[in-house]
C-alpha cells in the first residue's frame, strides 16, 4: 500500500552536496511491521520524514494507496525519538484529545474525551491524565505520544527510534505494549531503529540500510512466531546475519 520508487535525497551544506539516500525502492504491505535497520548516518530518519511528507525527495516517488505523499497528514502519524513531542502547555489528556478535535473526529467533546481515556488506559497512563508532560518520565511521555497518535486512528504509524533513549527494561515493556496495540488496531507500522534485537522482536520484514550514502543492502524476512523469545538459537543466527550486514 505504501510504495517508494527510486527515491533519492541529498542535502546541501555550503558548497558540498551530501548524498543521504540513493535509489530507495520498496513497498510496505497493509498491516505489517517493517523495520528500517541501520547505523547512524544511514539516512533512515530522513527516509521516514520523506514517507511522512515532512520533506521532499529530489527524485523518485512516494505514494500511499494511489496518492503521492506531498505533505504531512493525520493519516500517517510520526512518533519521534525526542521525549518533548508532547505539547507542554496541555495536560496528557488534552494532548490526546487535541488532534481529534483539530480533525473534528468522533462528534462531541465528551466522546473525544472518552476515547482519549480509553487510549490512555491502553498505554497504562489513565492515572496520569491530568498531569503535564514535564511531570512524566521519558517512557511515560513516549507512551502518551503513542496514545495521542493511535486515538486519531491513522492507518500508518511512522516511528523514528521512539524507544532509543529509554533504559533497557522500559524499552522492552514498550515493545511488548506496541505489539499488543498493533494486534488490536491493525495499523501499519514503519519502525526505524539501530537496535538489531528490537528489529527482530518487532518486524515482519527488516530493511537493512547501507551507510553513506544510504542504500538498501537487503530486505530480510522475519517470520518467527510472536511472542518472540530472542534467546533461542534461530534468533541468534538471524542476529548474527544482521550484525554482519551492518558492520561491513
Amino acid at each position: 500500500m505504501i510504495e517508494l520508487k527510486e527515491v533519492n535525497k541529498s542535502f546541501k551544506r555550503d558548497q558540498d552536496t551530501l548524498k543521504v539516500l540513493e535509489n530507495i525502492s520498496f513497498t510496505v504491505e497493509k498491516g505489517e511491521i517493517l523495520c528500517i535497520l541501520g547505523a547512524s548516518g544511514s539516512g533512515k530518519s530522513t527516509l521516514l520524514r520523506l514517507m511522512g511528507g515532512f520533506d521532499f525527495c529530489d527524485s523518485g516517488s512516494i505514494s500511499i494507496g494511489s496518492e503521492a505523499v506531498v505533505s504531512p497528514s493525520p493519516d500517517s502519524i510520526l512518533i519521534f525519538q525526542d521525549f518533548n513531542q508532547l505539547l507542554p502547555w496541555k495536560t496528557v489528556l488534552q494532548n490526546v484529545i487535541y488532534p481529534m478535535k483539530v480533525n473534528k473526529k468522533y462528534g462531541s467533546e465528551q466522546q473525544r474525551r472518552d476515547r482519549a481515556m480509553e487510549y490512555l488506559e491502553m498505554v497504562q497512563l489513565a492515572d496520569f491524565y491530568n498531569a503535564y508532560p514535564h511531570q512524566l518520565s521519558g517512557g511515560m511521555k513516549q507512551r502518551a505520544a503513542i496514545a495521542r497518535a493511535l486515538a486519531l486512528e491513522p492507518s500508518i504509524l511512522l516511528m523514528d527510534e521512539p524507544f532509543g533513549s529509554l533504559d533497557a527494561l522500559t524499552r522492552q515493556s514498550l515493545q511488548e505494549l506496541l505489539l499488543q496495540i498493533w494486534k488490536r488496531a491493525g495499523v501499519t507500522i514503519i519502525f526505524v531503529t539501530h537496535d538489531i534485537q528490537e528489529a527482530i522482536i518487532l518486524a515482519d520484514r527488516i530493511i537493512v540500510m547501507d551507510n553513506k550514502p544510504g542504500r538498501i543492502k537487503d530486505i530480510v524476512q522475519n517470520s518467527f512466531d510472536r511472542p518472540r523469545d530472542i534467546s533461542g538459537g534461530d534468533y541468534l543466527e538471524l542476529y548474527h546475519r544482521l550484525y554482519s550486514m551492518l558492520s561491513v
Binding site: P72, P99, V102
Partner: peptide, 26 residues
C-alpha cells in the same frame, strides 16, 4: 522547537491555526 511545528503539521494544522495553536503558546 521544530518538533512542535512538525507535530502541529502532522495533525493537520496549517497557516494561522498553526501559528495560533503552536507558535503562540510555545
Amino acid at each position: 522547537p521544530k518538533l512542535y511545528s512538525d507535530v502541529g503539521r502532522n495533525i493537520g494544522l496549517r497557516g494561522i491555526k498553526l501559528f495560533y495553536d503552536i507558535y503562540m503558546p510555545s
